[in-house]
Simulated assay, not measured.
Amino acid sequence: MNRTDLKNKVAESAGVSAAEADRAIDAVLGAITDALVAGDKVSLPGFGIFETRERAARTGRNPQTGESLDIAASTSAAFKPGAELKRKLAKS
């Protein structure tokens, strides 16, 4: 499913126009992004938790040359599915 498919599904389910659904999707994604940038978790009961995770600096290896290289520490977004989502996925 791509963004257009999602927009159309939301518009159909909510009984709104595609433009309104697109604005709603933008608002939700913007709110989640803002919370993660601020270091907060976003918990959607039954669906899951969006959070940030810190990755420590480490030494990696270039697979083509075998040369060692330093990989800087970073922060990444992570998603942990909720119990209801896990249950629904297990049935499919």
Rank of each mutant, 00 (worst) to 15 (best):
M1D: 12
N2L: 05
N2W: 06
N2I: 12
N2S: 11
N2K: 10
R3Q: 12
R3L: 10
T4Q: 14
T4A: 11
T4Y: 04
T4N: 11
D5C: 04
D5E: 15
L6G: 04
L6A: 13
L6D: 02
K7G: 02
K7P: 05
K7E: 10
K7N: 11
V10I: 15
V10Y: 00
V10D: 04
A11F: 03
A11T: 02
A11W: 02
E12S: 14
E12I: 01
E12M: 10
A14T: 06
G15H: 05
G15P: 00
V16T: 12
V16I: 15
S17M: 06
A18N: 11
A18G: 09
A18W: 09
E20F: 03
E20H: 13
R23M: 14
R23H: 05
R23L: 15
R23P: 00
A24E: 01
I25V: 10
I25R: 03
D26T: 14
D26C: 09
L29G: 12
L29T: 14
G30M: 04
G30V: 06
A31D: 12
A31S: 14
I32N: 07
T33S: 13
D34N: 09
D34K: 10
A35G: 03
L36N: 09
V37W: 02
G39T: 03
D40E: 15
D40Y: 01
K41H: 03
K41F: 08
V42H: 03
L44K: 08
L44R: 09
L44Q: 05
P45S: 12
P45L: 09
F47R: 02
F47Y: 08
F47N: 01
F47K: 01
G48W: 00
I49G: 07
F50R: 00
E51N: 14
E51I: 05
T52K: 01
T52M: 01
T52E: 09
R53M: 02
R55M: 11
A56R: 15
A57D: 08
A57T: 07
A57L: 08
R58A: 06
T59D: 05
T59H: 04
G60I: 07
N62E: 08
N62C: 05
N62H: 06
N62P: 03
N62I: 06
N62Q: 05
P63K: 10
P63L: 09
Q64G: 08
Q64T: 14
T65E: 00
T65V: 04
T65S: 11
T65Y: 04
G66K: 07
E67N: 06
S68I: 07
S68F: 12
L69D: 01
L69Q: 08
L69M: 15
D70W: 03
A72F: 08
A72P: 13
A73R: 00
S74H: 08
T75H: 07
S76V: 12
S76A: 15
S76F: 02
F79I: 06
K80W: 01
K80A: 13
P81K: 05
G82A: 03
G82F: 12
A83E: 09
A83D: 13
A83Y: 03
E84Q: 15
L85I: 02
K86D: 02
K86F: 00
K86A: 07
R87V: 07
K88V: 14
K91G: 13
S92V: 15
